[in-house]
Design a protein around this nucleic acid. Structure first.
Lengths: 350, 350
DNA sequence: AGACAAGATGTAAGGGCTTACATTGCGTTT
DNA sequence: AAACGCAATGTAAGCCCTTACATCTTGTCT
């Protein structure tokens, strides 16, 4: 008679998922002890721990997340809602965010809102219903009621990809307006006087709005009239960048430089310019924003604003975890992107 | 005295999330009725329904996901584990998958495994612990024990991005080897006799392995010796594509065509070729695989295999939902990608 | 009018886990 | 040797839902 047979509990169910009770029975301890082995192993004697963990392994036991969340009122899960996963803009930052969370024992749940406020709201509810201990959201702009809702539920929330010192909310990001103004100033310094801008849709997107405002600000500072700028709004995609550039170039007089709200649009714009037989930057300068990997892959490489995505992601994680643990968090954090001068920006044609 | 005050329950807790019981009290019904209003509204009288839904709204009630999962033993949630979110390869397909799921009332949970089998396994467990009703996995290759584990737990699972008629498992994908063989045949037809290949790491990646096998198959069929092909393995990224091309070109004799395991590597390769002063396709032909949007953005545009990502995603969703509902599912589905001939492939230099 | 079916609602038993509190068994202290 | 404190473990009360079953109302049929 093998010892293994002896120690197997009589009534071990052979069907369905094993539960804490099954493990407890097999290890001949109470469910409380099994729970402790799993959650705070230092409270339990080495020998007992060993016996329990063996049983866990033998049964292939896996705690039921729902039950655990119900009993413990926390889930070690945090949720992030990003506008889109279709392009690389958020990928790097979120990746870093996830890595930092994992190091701290948290799991990340990601949802994408397609830049739609109603979808975002639904997803906030869904993530909270799923027991998210905290949330990462992109940009400040959303209905006040949502913030109140989060507050009422005691769900900490960090804003990323935007920074506004005047808003007292945990955030990590950068001054979209200021960065874009800086870049636009560089463009103007090169003699460009008629500008085009391809922006993301500004409705419900404060980052896009701020970037447009940044260009206008630089223009005012350079003494240019508002009508020296033509703005086209479109959704992020190569294809839309192409179309938008065609639209800008069909106007007269043509702009000599086109500032794009992000790199994806800028790459589309470069391609369209090539299609029109325009040389970049000799005939037309084009700039981007974000500095995704693609920016150095196109020809000519893109002059753009380098956003420190990885740093933003990992600090967002730290910020959020501090908030969840009730530790003193550092409030809003401002990062300082730098302009990367590359081949797509040149002097205005004579 | 306002009616509102009258109808408010005495002991309505003012703190924390409202529960079913709070709603029930406020609407003066039992918790069972509230539950029915939420889950099968047609079982309940219109007037009662109205009263309950009003209470739900007034309290901002939101069911607790964990409790619901515990009680109902299903979650209307399905999980997907993809190798990476860093590039666009899976983005489109997953997007379509998610949309189809949403239409059917399911929520998608996404995890990324970084092409690491151990991470994938951990994530499978985590998704199941979270109560996923079904799973989407990429490619067939993983330990048999994992499939048994899923079976034991009764979790339906669909494989995507790969199709192998000889494996009796619900799947939707395409014949990676066959498609690549077809493309390679086109390359050979143009007179190329010394080939290079930049592949993803083949360890634990059956799609990558199959694609390499496809190239070899085409070569054998054309009567070429195995050593006419040099393969470099690397992880997916522009940067790695660049380095790999440099490596291939430092050999002698140089290949006249480089077949890449996917479009991201191919774009990197094109860029590196430009850096070496090589003209594509006059001096060197380069091909990709996937036909992501980027393929038409580079210069020259990429000859590649067009994978119908959206179709694959939405049919994967249907397949999985059928399995979950115990309906007769259609087993493995084979899609037929087409080769897209573009500028990056030309005749072998004289 | 009485019997009965069908529809609407209520009652209460779990579902798997965590954790406050109770119990047990030691080694120490005096 | 009695008293005590502490470490290790057990007991059992929830956490918030869903749902089988019981109960109560109506309306219909004969």
């Amino acid at each position: 008679m093998s010892r293994r047979n002896e120690s197997a509990p009589i009534d071990r169910p052979t069907t369905g998922r094993p539960t804490l009770a099954d493990v407890a029975a097999r290890a001949a301890v109470s469910t409380a002890t099994v729970s402790r082995c799993l959650n705070s192993p230092d409270l339990v004697q080495a020998e007992t721990l060993d016996r329990v963990m063996t049983a866990v392994r033998e049964l292939g036991y896996m705690p039921n997340f729902g039950a655990r969340a119900l009993a413990a009122k926390r889930t070690q899960t945090i949720g992030a809602i990003i506008p889109t996963m279709e392009n690389a803009i958020f990928a790097t930052g979120i990746q870093a965010f996830q890595e930092a969370l994992r190091d701290a024992g948290f799991t990340l749940l990601i949802a994408s809102s397609q830049y739609d406020a109603a979808v975002e709201e639904e997803q906030i509810r869904s993530l909270i219903a799923r027991g998210a201990d905290g949330l990462l959201l992109i940009g400040y702009h959303r209905e006040e009621a949502i913030y109140q809702f989060l507050e009422r539920h005691g769900i900490p929330c960090v804003i990323a990809w935007a920074y506004d010192g005047s808003i007292p909310r945990p955030a990590i990001g950068f001054d979209n307006r200021g960065c874009m103004a800086e870049l636009a100033a560089e463009v103007l310094r090169r003699g460009h006087r008629r500008l085009g801008m391809i922006s993301a849709e500004t409705a419900g997107n404060d980052r896009a709005r701020e970037r447009v405002a940044g260009v206008r600000q630089a223009m005012r500072e350079a003494g240019l009239a508002d009508d020296a700028l033509t703005v086209v709004e479109t959704r992020y995609s190569f294809e839309n960048g192409r179309k938008a550039l065609d639209a800008l170039m069909s106007r007269s007089p043509r702009p000599t430089a086109v500032i794009c709200g992000n790199d994806v649009l800028a790459v589309g714009a470069i391609q369209a310019a090539r299609g029109l037989g325009l040389k970049v930057p000799e005939d037309l300068s084009i700039t981007g924003f974000d500095d995704i990997e693609l920016a150095t892959v196109v020809d000519p490489p893109l002059t753009t604003v380098h956003v420190p995505h990885r740093r933003m992601g990992s600090r967002a994680a730290r910020l959020l975890i501090d908030l969840i643990n009730g530790e003193p968090a550092e409030g809003a954090v401002e990062l300082h992107p730098e302009i990367r001068m590359r081949g797509s920006l040149g002097p205005a044609p004579a």
